[in-house]
């Protein structure tokens, strides 16, 4: 699989939201886009998912331009995305049902992906009986079950509290290491990007554009150690500084 985003721009009315964005991804990559609120992160993901059309530039998957949403690009939103009337297993099965997979295959894959996200025991629970973290794991399992070639995650842990967020990060990293998924993660959390991704792009707002890209080659066998390691901390400091420079709030301190 090869995802190529080239000179991607998006306007809403007069306002330029994304300005000539370019990047590419290959099978097995884990990439993160970090940016402050309003920098156009969700817009990028929606364009790749095919939920919106670019104003100019192109997005291709294996050479074919993206023309609309499809199960080859699985998407997980920040919240509200489980079907409240279906239990966890039925939620996971839903996408496969839409594609009219065979019942036996649906059953088998549902059990498998519930197992992958560690929720076999919660199969018959309704979404409202699940914690926020469990709900997001169901959403991830549901997206994976339709066998996408890339998983698009829009701040999937943004609504969770810190502790659960860290354990979900561990979970996602292990999942990626185990299954060789291709993941494009969007976040405003520098640490989350550094912990998870192999490559991080920093997005500046107004209009959204990539101002810094870096490869992360840290030892990720133990995340708790990683979070405290000096290499990690200095990268985090450096990225945070980059983000802070973009913060419009600073204008209030400096005369500008």
């Amino acid at each position: 699989m090869e995802l190529i985003v080239e000179n991607l721009s998006k306007r809403f009315g007069e306002k330029l939201i994304l300005d000539h964005l370019s990047f590419s991804m290959h099978s097995g990559d884990f990439m993160a886009l970090v940016g402050s609120s309003g920098s156009g992160k969700s817009t990028i993901l929606r364009l790749i998912a095919g939920l919106d059309q670019p104003s100019s530039g192109s997005i291709t998957v294996d050479g074919t331009p993206v023309s609309g949403p499809g199960p080859d690009r699985g998407m997980v939103f920040q919240k509200y995305s489980l079907y409240p009337w279906l239990n966890a297993a039925e939620n996971v099965a839903f996408g496969m049902r839409l594609q009219r997979m065979k019942a036996a295959q649906i059953k088998e894959r549902t059990a498998y992906f519930l197992e992958v996200v560690g929720l076999s025991d919660a199969a018959t629970k309704l979404p409202r009986e699940l914690s926020g973290g469990m709900q997001q794991r169901v959403a991830i399992a549901r997206a994976l079950a339709t066998n996408p070639s890339i998983l698009l995650l829009d701040e999937p842990f943004g609504a969770l509290d810190l502790q659960i967020r860290e354990s979900m990060q561990d979970f996602l990293l292990k999942l990626w290491q185990r299954t060789g998924l291709t993941v494009l993660l969007i976040t405003h959390d520098v640490e989350e990007a550094l912990v998870l991704a192999q490559r991080v792009h920093v997005l500046a707002p107004n209009p959204g554009r990539i101002i810094r890209s870096l490869d992360i080659d840290l030892d990720k066998t133990n995340l708790d150690q990683l979070r405290l390691s000096s290499a990690f901390l200095s990268m985090r400091r450096s990225l945070s500084a980059t983000m802070r420079e973009l913060e419009p709030a600073l204008c209030l301190v400096k005369p500008c």
Binding site: A49, G74, M75, F77, P84, L98, Q99, A139
Partner: peptide, 25 residues
Amino acid sequence: IELIETTLTLGGRSRQVLVQVVARY
């Protein structure tokens, strides 16, 4: 809207979205 868009990214067609998600919800 997230529920509708999720369904689209799972491969749902308009009719499936209307009947199985919008009407059901």
